[in-house]
Computed example of a mutant assay.
Amino acid sequence: MSNCVLVVLGKDGWSVTYTTLSICALKGSTVNISCSYTYPSNHEIKTAFWFTKWESGMDPEDLSSVPGYEGHIEYLGDKKSDCTLRITNLRLSDSAGYRFRLITSGDKIAGSPVSLTVTDVVLEMNPTSVSEGEGVTLTCRTKCTLDPITAYSWYKNGQPITNTNTYSPVYSLFSVSSEDTGRYFCAVKGHEDLPSAEETLTVTYGSRNTSVSVSPSGVIVEGSSVTLTCSSDANPPVDKYTWYKKNVASPKASGQSYSITNIISEDSGEYYCEAENKIAS
């Protein structure tokens, strides 16, 4: 936080001092709005509280009595000089200007507002679907600047990603492979219990590791039947299978499985399949 800021209220003997006039904090965390005050020694304090809304012609409402704030805020101050306010389990809706109100036997005054901005952590992935060899940029964002300078933690499928520049909000994958497919999220160092939502990276690639299985296996006799099944790794999945017999130019069949029934000697030979998806064959 910045150095102490003295806010003088324009009356002799009155002052309010904050450690900062602007606070950026993470959703779900706890923040203390540090504050101290002075007032004329011949006055007696009647009440001291914080508020966010003050309509013209009406007294401001103590936040502790506003529905939804019970157990959410805590006045840590006293009736001497401390006016610190604690807000726990911060919500995005807690973003507001917070003002301290002091009522004494001789007067009533209000301090200047302290601006609180509550931010969540957002992971932006660009793009979310790529072909192998392309690049992806992941950016961990907050809508205000956390103080002090923030470091980041990166995760894939729930596990920490090592060897990353933790002081940069950007994590780059320069040439992705299928192994980079997964669910990613980020968090601010020290607040790993308050991570971003997950983003899923999809890596597409053409068919590979194509193989053929035979059923039944072993020696095939004339008059029997056999089924050949083609399998291949691809993303998106293979949508076209074509069967060939070695040294025969024209395809024999299509589909993932190819059945040969009532086998004769001319069916003998080597068979192979070609697998294709929308990326490549």
Rank of each mutant, 00 (worst) to 15 (best):
K189H: 14
S115D: 08
S268W: 01
A197P: 01
L90P: 00
V130F: 06
D267Q: 08
L6T: 04
S175H: 10
L102N: 04
S211H: 11
K108F: 03
W14H: 12
W154D: 09
S22V: 06
D62E: 14
S22P: 02
T229A: 12
R141M: 14
E55T: 13
A249P: 03
T119D: 08
G57C: 03
V130E: 04
W154H: 05
L85N: 12
D180C: 01
D233C: 00
I73D: 11
P67E: 15
A48Q: 07
S15M: 02
E274V: 14
S265Y: 02
V176S: 02
T166K: 13
T47G: 02
S211A: 14
S217G: 14
D239G: 03
P195V: 03
Q159D: 13
Y184N: 08
Y167A: 10
S2C: 08
P216A: 09
G111V: 01
W14Y: 15
T52V: 15
S36K: 05
V5K: 00
S178K: 13
I45S: 08
Q159G: 02
H43G: 04
V212I: 15
V176T: 04
V248E: 14
T166Q: 09
L6V: 06
T84H: 01
T181G: 07
K245F: 01
S81G: 09
T117A: 03
Y167K: 07
V66D: 01
L26T: 10
P169A: 05
L85P: 13
L102H: 02
